[in-house]
Design a protein around this nucleic acid. Structure first.
Lengths: 230, 230
DNA sequence: ATATATTTGTGTCAATACTACACAAAATAA
DNA sequence: TTATTTTGTGTAGTATTGACACAAATATAT
């Protein structure tokens, strides 16, 4: 066994953008080369020989869209023999969440154009990228239910409503503000600051911050975040 | 970009064996070739060019250990540039759970020997296989808490104590039999049969069965299995 | 300046879910 | 025939969940 093998390894990124209440989008590029020339696709590309998978996906994302991500989580590896019509390509996919308006997106290398699309109104995607996207969306929702994802995303200090809207948007459903706040505060890793912020119209909001130390300590004790109910 | 790339794609399997109360083991092979000749390792090997990842991992497992698995779940893809001292090898890992005594394990191809090891008493492992194993063990425990893993594993009809022991073993802690049974039965996808089985000494046990249809229907409705507490 | 709209902040109560706990029944083994 | 092993079952106290509404603080419109 251990025959000659000619399989390429690629990475693809599903980058979700949370802008404001109800606005969940995903970052796509328009392919500039065949196959699937001019079709929208997830940013990604081949891994370089001495580069880690994480480095590769961040590099491709940067090159193709201009977006820089600190944290991307590995999602799944797609390896069906015919998923790329040219060669055998195994794709290791990653996903992450950012605020779109923190970036000026660009076009570069073999991508013609990069653009945010609302998750509920996607164009046709190249390769098996729709499958990858679906997997990522499911995982994002699932993850939210037992991990305080989103704290990386919010500003260091944020009004509570930011968290509420983030959850409501990703889960695609309303949450009970009182119960949500009670639950989150009960965990103890979100703390009130004594700052107050006035952004929109309405009563000014206290700012809160995420205490990562406390959170990590809890995790070490086998703590299991649980907000299934909200 | 799209430079020449010479990366190999491999698969590795972390197969857990649940035998009886307190006996959780993992299937290893002793490598017959360098590097790491004579060191214990996870079963696995290179993916063939026209073979899916799932097919590859099942084939390698069969060849190296004689174990046939219906269901293996993808775990994680390990791709650090130096994880294999020879070439760049990206490994897509899988994990699963079986009853060890259902198989006669053998030795074959480039594996010298296959053997079950208790998870708490592992030998030194080749490559980064200890990392892979740790990831799998963590995932197995986590999965148990929100999915009825183990029904594939048990006989079609089983006494309730089998489930209890499976959970207790994998979680590595005692469970309250009454509360556990109440909770599982409340889900509605485990049904009592009218058969009775006498195996060990003690009162004979009713046999139960898993109703996969009901389970799948629940999943479709966004149902979230939850037995964190047991 | 005043009225209107918007957003934040907060408590209670009923219903459900969790957890701790012990003993009889049915069989085998000694 | 007695001891041992394993199954099967209910209750009550406690904790968590989820439903629900209105006043406070500000911006915006007239």
């Amino acid at each position: 066994m251990a025959l000659q093998q000619d399989i390429k390894v690629a990475v693809d990124a599903v980058v979700f953008g949370y802008e404001s209440k109800g606005n969940l989008s995903v970052l796509l590029i328009r392919r500039g080369v065949d196959p699937f020339k001019n079709t929208w696709a997830l940013p990604g590309g081949l891994v370089l020989e001495h580069e880690s998978l994480e480095a590769a996906v961040k590099r491709e994302l940067k090159e193709e869209t201009g977006v820089t991500m600190d944290y991307l989580e590995q999602l799944y590896t797609f390896g069906k023999p015919k998923r790329d019509p040219r060669n055998r390509v195994v794709s290791v996919s990653y996903f992450g969440l950012v605020r779109p308006n923190h970036f000026k997106i660009k076009a570069d290398t073999d991508a013609d154009e990069a653009k945010w699309f609302p998750v509920n109104d996607l164009p046709k995607l190249a390769f098996d990228h729709k499958t990858i996207f679906n997997t990522a969306e499911k995982r994002l929702k699932g993850k939210l239910l037992y991990q305080p994802i989103g704290f990386d995303l919010l500003s260091a200090e944020f009004p509570f409503s930011d968290l509420e809207h983030l959850y409501a948007t990703i889960l695609g459903q309303d949450i009970d503000r009182r119960n949500f706040r009670k639950k989150i505060m009960s965990f103890g890793f979100v703390e009130e600051t004594n700052k107050i912020q006035q952004v929109r119209s309405g009563r000014p909001a206290k700012l809160f911050k995420f205490n990562k130390q406390k959170y990590d300590a809890l995790l070490d004790n086998g703590f299991y975040f649980d907000i299934k109910f909200v």
